[in-house]
C-alpha cells in the first residue's frame, strides 16, 4: 500500500504538470482542464480518505482524533492557491484592464475563502479534544483567521459595488494590498505569540501518515482547480448575460450606420 500510495502521488503530480503545460500551450481550455481535474479528483480523494481514515495508524498521543488533519492540512493548500490566484490575477487586471482576470481573481478569493473556512472549522474541532478549547491564539491559526477577514472584506466590497470596472479595480487593489501584507502579518503574529509560549517542536511522523497526507493534499488541489474553473465559468456566464443585453444594441448600431 505504501508503494501504491507513493506511486499514485507521483502519477497525479505528473498529470497536474502535464495539464498545466497543455494549458500554457493552449492545447487545453481552462474549462476542460477543470473537468479533467474534477474527474481525477474523485478517485484520488476516495483513495486518500481510505489511506487517512482507515489505513494509516492512529497517533501515539492523540489516538483517532488526529485523523481530522487529513482534511485540515490540505485545506490550507486550497486556501493558499485561491489567495495566490486572487493576488496574481488582480495584478494582471490592473495591468491589462481585462475583466476576465477580474473573474479569475474573484473566483480565487471565493474558493480560497471556502477552503480557509474549512481549515478554521476543522482546526477548531481538532483543538477541542486536543487543547480543551475551541479556539486558541496559536500563531498560524490566528494568521489564517486574519487572512479570512482580509478576503471576506474583499468579497463584501465587491458585493457593494455595481459598476463592473469600478468593482474590479477597487477589489483588485484590496487583494493586492491584503496579500502583500500577509507575510508581515504572519511574522508579527509569531513574534506576538512566541513571547508567551514556545513553538511546539515537530514530531516524528509515520511514513504511512505522510503518504496519506500527500494524497489528500493532491486531491484537494485537484478539487480546488475544478471549483476555480467552475466559479470562473459562472462569472463569465454573468458577464455574457450582460453582453447579451448589448448584442441587439450593437446590431442596431450597425444598421444605423448603413
Amino acid at each position: 500500500m505504501q508503494q501504491v500510495g507513493s506511486l499514485l502521488v507521483w502519477i497525479v503530480l505528473a498529470f497536474l504538470v502535464a495539464t498545466w503545460i497543455a494549458l500554457f500551450a493552449r492545447r487545453l481550455s481552462p474549462q476542460k482542464a477543470g473537468t479533467l481535474w474534477g474527474i481525477v479528483a474523485l478517485p484520488v480523494l476516495a483513495f486518500g480518505l481510505y489511506l487517512g481514515l482507515l489505513w494509516a495508524p492512529p497517533d501515539v498521543l492523540m489516538g483517532e482524533v488526529y485523523r481530522i488533519m487529513y482534511v485540515h492540512f490540505p485545506s490550507w493548500i486550497g486556501t493558499g492557491a485561491g489567495y495566490l490566484t486572487a493576488f496574481v490575477c488582480s495584478l494582471l487586471y490592473i495591468r491589462s484592464r481585462d475583466l476576465r482576470f477580474d473573474s479569475w481573481a474573484s473566483a480565487g478569493a471565493e474558493i480560497g475563502l471556502v477552503f480557509n473556512a474549512t481549515g478554521l472549522i476543522t482546526g477548531s474541532i481538532w483543538g477541542r479534544p486536543t487543547w480543551g478549547v475551541w479556539w486558541t491564539w496559536d500563531p498560524r491559526l490566528t494568521w489564517t483567521a486574519i487572512m479570512a477577514v482580509t478576503f471576506a472584506g474583499y468579497l463584501v466590497l465587491r458585493a457593494l459595488m455595481e459598476d463592473p470596472e469600478a468593482r474590479a479595480r477597487a477589489s483588485s487593489l484590496v487583494a493586492i494590498i491584503g496579500f502583500a501584507t500577509l507575510p508581515i502579518v504572519y511574522f508579527s503574529v509569531r513574534w506576538w505569540r512566541t513571547l508567551h509560549q514556545p513553538q511546539s517542536s515537530p514530531e516524528t511522523v509515520d511514513p504511512q501518515m505522510v503518504v496519506a497526507l500527500r494524497t489528500m493534499m493532491l486531491a484537494f488541489l485537484l478539487i480546488f482547480g475544478y471549483l476555480l474553473t467552475r466559479r470562473f465559468a459562472l462569472a463569465q456566464l454573468r458577464a455574457e448575460a450582460e453582453l447579451a443585453a448589448l448584442e441587439p444594441d450593437e446590431l442596431e448600431m450597425e444598421a444605423a450606420g448603413d
Binding site: D163, P164, E242, L246, M253, G257
Partner: peptide
C-alpha cells in the same frame, strides 16, 4: 463607453 449594461457613448 459602456457603463454596466448601457452604452453611454456609441461610436
Amino acid at each position: 463607453k459602456r457603463y454596466g449594461r448601457t452604452w453611454a457613448l456609441r461610436r
